[in-house]
């Protein structure tokens, strides 16, 4: 059977691990199946891909569920599950995954250089670029 062309686009707005994992897991599954994936990190999502925030985000959970933060962290560690950003880096290594950082948020957070962000970031872009790249997506999510 011919490979169906599919494309997943996600605006990653959240910076807590309970949302970053779903984004990373969907990206990994999609990359494994040969999907094109476009990720646009903005606001708290962008904050979490600062090199010094990757592990901080790993421990952060949405406030509504904060009583579960420690239990979740322990469970993830016991499962031997990769960290959210490791999963993303692996997904990138195996498929057609492009990762973008929002320029406006960078300015807002005082991030001057792309080098302050995780190495898996491809490019600093704006909303117009993301819209143009995502317009033919099969699945589009805001997480």
């Amino acid at each position: 059977m011919a490979e169906k062309k599919s494309k997943l686009s996600i605006i990653v707005w959240s910076g807590t691990v309970d949302k970053l994992y779903p984004a990373a897991i969907l990206t990994s599954a999609a990359a494994s199946g040969g999907w094109e994936v476009e990720l646009f990190f903005t606001f708290w999502g962008l904050n979490s891909i600062r090199k010094d925030m990757l592990d901080v985000a790993q421990r952060q959970i949405d406030r509504s569920y904060e009583q579960y933060a420690q239990a979740a962290a322990e469970a993830i560690s016991k499962m031997g599950f990769p960290k959210w950003y490791e999963l993303l880096a692996q997904a990138k290594g195996m498929g057609n995954v492009r990762i973008f950082a929002c320029s406006t948020t960078m300015e807002m957070f005082g991030i001057k250089e792309k080098t302050a962000l995780a190495d898996f970031v491809d490019e600093v872009v704006g909303a117009a670029t993301f819209l143009e790249r995502a317009k033919d997506s099969t699945i589009t999510l805001f997480i």
Partner: peptide, 15 residues
């Protein structure tokens, strides 16, 4: 064995 979604699919895809 002992690995969880999406690892089995990712590893299958590589293997």
């Amino acid at each position: 064995r002992g690995k969880f979604c999406p690892i089995p699919v990712m590893e299958t895809s590589k293997a």
